[in-house]
């Protein structure tokens, strides 16, 4: 096949042009209201500046909230965020309510961990999925004010020799497992175990390994630990809890796109819920059992 050089060149130039046009960056003003509303929401200093009409939403009039699938207890109940049950389900609707959304104005979408933290545009207004707030993460995404502070817990089998541990030092010789990309994995350094921890995609797989005897104990945040021992594992127990010292103690915040104009309003709503005692009440309602677990020194 021989194309004469000039015709070949023209075709290539046309192709390059087409490519450039197809890949040209989309204008950023689509879909999220006019720039003036975004600026108003961004400068919000009180909840009265945050009415649904003023907010630069993904879909106007609708508050789009994301979480992972499946959504586990005690954060959600029956893997159905729309029922408003479970701690995060209830907090999400309380935040929406503070911002002036009716229950029907809230839409839920599914977003996995990596999807939520990817650079670029988001498919949600906010994501509530036990995201720990860290300074490093805050470089890539926005966080609201924290709605929960979690301790770390040690889970083991009831017949394990580590079930009677009363201090972190008692766990030094245990083979430990934790979920990747969690504060739990970082917190293992406080125990300074004699062998490297095993790392799992999620706590369900770590729990499998615990049941198989591949790890002696699993480190997870306290609410997940409660769920694991009550629902997923047979014959498992929470040995105790401890506050992680690496960095700040773990706090969960709602996740938003980096520099989202919604962040100030969502934070104001969370702050208001903390001030009026709603968060404490919801925590008591959905995470009460957390108080029975002894502290490991």
């Amino acid at each position: 096949m021989f194309i004469s050089s000039s015709r070949g060149l023209t075709a290539l130039a046309a192709l390059a042009l087409a490519l450039t046009a197809a890949c040209a960056p989309a204008d950023s003003d689509g879909g999220s209201g006019s720039d003036s509303t975004a600026d108003a929401a961004k400068a919000a200093t009180s909840l009265s500046d945050c009415k649904p009409a003023d907010l630069p939403l993904l879909t106007s009039g609708t508050f789009t909230i994301a979480t992972d699938d499946p959504a586990f207890e005690p954060w959600f109940v029956d893997n159905d965020p729309t029922n408003g049950k479970g701690f995060e389900g209830a907090v999400a609707y309380a935040v929406a309510d503070k911002l002036g959304f009716a229950k029907d104005d809230v839409t839920w979408v599914k977003a996995g961990f990596n999807q939520a933290v990817q650079a670029g545009t988001k498919s949600f207004d906010v994501d509530i999925n036990q995201f720990s707030i860290t300074a490093d993460r805050a470089k890539a995404v926005d966080f609201s004010s924290p709605y929960y502070s979690a301790a770390q817990a040690i889970i083991t089998l009831k017949d394990s020799s580590f079930a009677g541990a009363t201090t972190l030092a008692d766990l030094k010789d245990a083979k430990l497992g934790a979920q990747v990309a969690t504060t739990s994995l970082e917190a293992i350094k406080q125990i300074a175990p004699s062998s490297d921890p095993l790392v799992y995609d999620d706590t369900t797989k770590a729990a499998q390994a615990l049941q198989n005897g591949q790890v002696d104990a699993v480190v997870a945040d306290l609410p997940s630990a409660y769920y694991l021992t009550s629902a997923e594992l047979d014959g498992a127990t929470i040995v105790g809890q401890f506050q992680p010292t690496t960095g700040e103690s773990e706090k969960f915040g709602l996740l938003l796109a980096k520099d989202s104009a919604l962040t100030p309003c969502v934070s104001l709503a969370v702050d208001a819920l903390a001030d009026d005692g709603t968060l404490a009440a919801l925590e008591k309602e959905w995470l009460t059992q957390a108080t029975d677990v002894p502290e490991l020194k």
């Binding site: 933290v117 860290t134 490093d136 993460r137 995404v141 969690t182 970082e186 490297d196 095993l198 790392v199």
Partner: peptide, 16 residues
Amino acid sequence: VEALRVAQVDAGRTFA
């Protein structure tokens, strides 16, 4: 804990 997992652990820590 192989190479890609180490990368994932790092990504979870830094979001990079």
